[in-house]
Design a binder for these strands. Structure first.
Length: 636
RNA sequence: GGGCGCGUAGUCUAGCCUGGAUAAGGCGCCAGCCUUCGAAGUUGGAGGUCUCAGGUUCGAAUCCUGACGCGCCCGCCA
């Protein structure tokens, strides 16, 4: 149940209806609540109940007859309830109509009272969340699939903040991988001069070049392994080359994120982890557990393994031993991930020092882990989210399972893999090694999108300044890309097609932005007339009321998305597309209202009321776009 | 071998968790609407064996079982 301090007009209306129905049908509130639905067409009613079907079983009566009986009692009850004007039955369905005027008044009053915080709630206040995304290797630019990850992570963060969580956004930088060693090897032969190229693109191309030599020469492989060893020693020449290279690459990748409105609070660097002592602390913790040990014989002799067979789900595995540390003492990926996850929950004392990595355009610094610098204070987290492709479902599950084996049951349960499908081309995935990302980097897509948007802006605003056109083109382009990524259900693979990603018509961000621009134009052209009193009881026509209802549902919609997150076998579900769908629906209803209900030319009392509705719409749409990270436009 | 996801008009998708009234949108196609707040809009139309077969139910796109098709995952790798 929603707390009273949060404005949630739709839920309030629903609760009132549920209460009356429960009384009329002489049954529990829960039973009624579960039977409530929205009728397929609003001419049938604003809410409906299928309670008669449920009761038919126990009462052994015809559902339609039950519905009529309930209706008779309901008729009396609604006289005392100002929010409900009419109830009727259609066969077994009990249909409820809100009192349009009263409902409009409470909704609009809620919105104007809450303003920019309309839609936020305190439901999850006091809980802290750490979320990691998008963890791109610092050896290439983001391709458009990385953008999907980052946009999902950022929007999820926004939603969680809206429902009361404190969210810390973390980026993971793997500066010790094979990719980095390969690039350092290459950079010792070629100039580190990127020329006009953005540094991450420069590296990305170099990386593709390296692959062929690497695959075809054992000599090169040997040399790269040598570099790899040197990287462990922070004082080595190779480590210095690497440090500078990675710094420049991450900085370049950040620029891409900034264009999309994506910012972080912290970066955790692998090189810092390697020298922090975290790994040996984690190993010591692991080895103390009953189900984690070192086999003395067999093919895994000398490794530190977790015995998964004690977990029901894995008891039938052919080989239930999951290796965390190899027989040579080095960690596997799973081992490292477990250590990192322990650190994220504060189960390992934070050994890091922190330094400012960059000052972000949102005015906040992003800090990185280092070995010098000031101490940080990340604090404890209740929930840890990792935004990672769905292909990593199994490895992620391993990490959480090991946590459970170690006795950290609560932390294991509160570890979530936010899974999503990849973005690819028809018949092929993006690959850093093969360079299939070329032409599909996030920068390329944003550039092309901005270029196309500029053409559109030019046509519509030929007399505006170049600065204005550039700004709007950018807002439209960024919005279009973010919406495109969010509007696809995360469990569905996206086959990237330019004409689809860059379509500015229909079900796309510019439609939402446009509706907002139109609303603002109306409000801008209004001279405030304080002579006339606001009478919200005027808003009773279909287009007006449909818009009111959509506005009233916004807080519930945001909460629903947060509540619907659920741990599944393949990861934790996150319905990003529900928020875009809401925004699209809201824009549609505004467009219909706009078309059929003149505001400025209406007679004074109606005009005043409609202006209040337009203003409520503007507030709601603005808040919704902010969650989606879609730029707010004034004109376009 | 085991597991996961997906299958809905020409096309791209939403709905499936939590069963309910005529299966909802975008793009494309056809026909309208700018002397009235911005046409990136709006009104109407054509277009469907919801992959298939069983089952549960008063009721199934939705839940269960089994097929089929497509994609992915199951290393002391990274």
């Amino acid at each position: 149940m929603t707390k009273a301090i949060d404005d949630n007009p739709w839920d309030s209306g629903k609760q009132a209806v549920v209460k009356m129905l429960a009384e009329a049908a002489d049954t529990t509130v829960e039973t009624v609540y579960d039977s409530i639905e929205v009728p397929p067409d609003s001419v049938m009613g604003d809410l409906a109940s299928t309670l008669a079907f449920t009761l038919a079983k126990e009462l052994k009566k015809n559902p339609a007859a039950i519905a009529s009986e309930v209706l008779a009692k309901l008729q009396k009850l609604i006289e005392k309830e100002s929010l409900v004007s009419k109830v009727e039955t259609k066969g077994p369905y009990i249909n409820i109509f809100f009192d349009r005027a009263a409902f409009a008044k409470t909704t609009i009053t809620s919105v104007s009272k809450s303003g920019s915080s309309y839609g936020t709630s305190s439901q999850f206040k006091g809980k802290r969340v750490l979320i990691e995304f998008p963890a791109v290797n610092p050896s290439k630019p983001w391709h458009i699939g990385h953008a999907r990850n980052a946009i999902l992570g950022d929007t999820l963060s926004n939603i969680l903040e809206n429902v009361g969580y404190e969210v810390v956004r973390l980026e993971y930088i793997n500066d010790l991988g094979l990719q980095i060693a390969q690039l350092v090897w290459k950079l010792k032969q070629v100039s580190d001069d990127a020329g006009d190229q953005k540094y991450d693109h420069f590296l990305g191309h170099l990386y593709v070049e390296v692959q062929e030599t690497f695959d075809n020469s054992e000599e090169v492989q040997k040399e790269v392994r040598e570099v790899s060893r040197h990287l462990e020693d922070l004082q080595s020449e190779d480590a210095k080359i690497s440090g500078e290279m990675v710094r420049k690459c991450v900085l370049a990748q950040c620029q891409t994120g900034y264009r999309l409105g994506i910012f972080h609070n912290y970066q955790v660097w692998e090189s810092a982890i390697a020298h922090s002592g975290i790994l040996s602390l984690a190993r010591d913790m692991m080895i103390k557990c009953d189900n984690i040990f070192i086999p003395e014989e067999g093919d895994k002799a000398g490794c530190i393994v977790a015995d998964l067979s004690v977990i029901d789900e894995f008891k039938d595995l052919k080989d239930p031993y999951k290796i965390l540390f190899r027989s040579d003492g080095t960690r596997t990926y799973t081992g490292a991930d477990v250590a990192l996850q322990l650190w994220k929950f504060g189960l390992i004392k934070d050994p890091f020092k922190y330094a400012v990595f960059d000052s972000q355009p949102n005015g906040e610094d992003v800090k990185r882990t280092t070995l010098q610098g000031g101490r940080g204070d990340l604090g404890k987290f209740d929930i840890v989210l990792n935004v990672i492709g769905t292909r990593q479902a199994h490895p992620q599950k391993m990490v959480y399972t090991v946590l459970d084996l170690m006795g950290f049951t609560k932390e294991s349960e509160n570890s979530h893999h936010i899974a999503y499908e990849f973005v690819g081309l028809e018949g092929q995935d993006f690959s850093g090694r093969q360079g299939t990302w070329v032409g599909y980097s996030t920068d390329d897509v944003l550039n092309k999108s901005t270029e196309m948007a500029l053409t559109e802006v030019n046509q519509r605003n030929p007399d505006e300044s170049d600065e204005f056109k550039a700004m709007v083109a950018n807002q439209v382009a960024v919005g279009a890309i973010r919406y495109f990524m969010l509007n696809a259900s995360p469990d569905r693979k996206i086959t990237f097609r330019w004409e689809q990603a860059l379509d500015f018509n229909g079900d796309a961000a510019p439609y939402l932005q446009y509706s907002l621009a139109r609303a603002k134009r109306i409000l801008e052209k209004t001279e405030r007339d304080n002579e006339v009193e606001v009478d919200l009881y005027q808003l009773t026509s279909d287009p007006e009321f449909e818009l009111v209802k959509a506005i009233s549902k916004y807080p519930e919609e945001v909460l629903d998305v947060a509540r619907a997150m659920k741990k599944e076998v393949w990861g934790t579900s996150f319905f990003s597309n529900r928020i875009t769908a809401y925004g699209y629906g809201l824009a549609t209803l505004f467009s219909k209202f706009y078309d059929s209900c003149p505001v400025l030319k209406a007679e004074p009392r109606v005009k005043k009321a409609r202006l209040a509705l337009v203003e409520s719409f503007m507030i709601t749409m603005t808040n919704c776009l902010q969650i989606l990270g879609i730029p707010i436009v004034d004109r376009m």
